[in-house]
Nucleic acid binder design. Structure first.
Lengths: 215, 215
DNA sequence: TGACCAATGGCCCGTCCGGGGGATGTTCTC
DNA sequence: GAGAACATCCCCCGGACGGGCCATTGGTCA
């Protein structure tokens, strides 16, 4: 019995290529989705053994789709597809229940191997796999181990996000129920950590680093 | 005689998929490159009829590689591959000498058709094609035609870019050889146009709109 | 030619921001 | 239980910032 695979990626070019490659490898590609919502729908309808799920998709991203599919008590395993190994995204994907990830720069053989591994994972080897993947991601993303895991404190991040959203010091203060001085202290700490000299630079740097997001 | 194609994309997954798809369509995939430098080298060595060239690649991006290949007096035609239609990037690709572009969300048939069209373009239909493509890009990027072509003045943009680069008012002033007051006047005008109330918001809005770019 | 606008600049003002002190309490870890 | 982070707050100060009002110089376009 062939392993049944669902492809979810918003680029048809990649889907068609994967379909051909996987078919030649003996897999049964049962469906294709070009966004997260469709992936969720087709996963419920087709109950594939494995979903190859791109992270970035319109309507609903791959991580959210993974969360929903994994939350629906099916045995479907999910492998994330990413352009580049991004620590934060992958960590979240794993928390969402992904069984593994594949960088798009890998060969058909590697994809086939990963799909077979994921499909055979009815015994839950995923916690172990997830842990080793997280290690790997850390290794990929942190060539300098002296660097802290968390550059910015949770509280500092809250302040920074509000600044990025257009709030002034006093507005941030009242939103977080703290004094203006505390906000300024957090900001001062942020400036040091992000090597910025004012809020404009701090927000830009945070955007570059993916700490805050443009609304 | 089959059309000879070179694939240049840093994601092996996509390359292998394209290779299979194009082979089935009767094309001769003569080589694969995973970065721009290699694409230039292989294009010179293999003299393919068409190069399918991804825009974003390590070492050297696709636009630069296109410029070099087109500059080397070969008849090789180049089709750009992009994730999403981005006006600026595509316009530059066309200036660099690309014969067309393909969004990665297109079918094998469309790819095949585009490759055939590009290969048959020994008579230079490219100027016309380029023009129509530019129109299309503009249409894609400008759903609202009431919008002004230029929201921000050239001078205002210079000020804004320097602010985004981390300059203070006085630094911008001395860099542009104008007084601080003039910089502040420009900024005031920018705030009005971008619906921002301070430089932080103005810069963020400009980044969203693609007016300025993160360094 | 007169209307308009971009670009330049001056003076003044109130507010905001960044940074310098120092202080308290909690929550961890070692 | 000592020490390190983290989060909270105070006072103070100089400079940066945003804005109001107005003026001059060039273009462009009707």
């Amino acid at each position: 019995m062939a392993i049944r695979v669902l492809l979810a990626d918003d680029h048809r070019m990649l889907r068609e290529g994967l379909r051909r490659s996987l078919s030649e490898e003996g897999f049964d590609v049962v469906g294709e989705a070009d966004n997260g919502e469709q992936a969720v729908r087709l996963a419920a309808e087709l109950t594939p053994d494995v979903v190859l799920m791109d992270v970035t998709m319109p309507e609903m991203d791959g991580v959210e789709a993974t969360r929903i599919i994994r939350g629906s008590s099916t045995r479907t395993r999910i492998l994330m597809l990413t352009m580049h190994a991004d620590k934060d995204v992958l960590a979240e994907a794993i928390r969402a229940g992904a069984s593994g990830y594949l960088v798009k720069d890998c060969s058909t053989e590697e994809v086939a191997e990963a799909v077979r591994m994921a499909a055979s994972g009815d015994t839950d080897l995923s916690p172990h796999l997830a842990a080793s993947m997280l290690d790997e991601v850390r290794r990929l993303e942190r060539p300098d181990p002296t660097e802290e895991d968390r550059v910015i404190t949770k509280r500092e991040e809250e302040v920074l996000q509000r600044i990025a959203d257009g709030c002034s010091t006093s507005e941030v203060a009242s939103q977080l129920y703290i004094s203006q001085k505390t906000v300024k202290n957090h900001l001062a700490s942020i400036y040091q950590k992000l090597d910025a000299r004012d809020r404009t630079q701090a927000v830009l740097q945070a955007v570059r680093m993916g700490i805050v997001h443009l609304s």
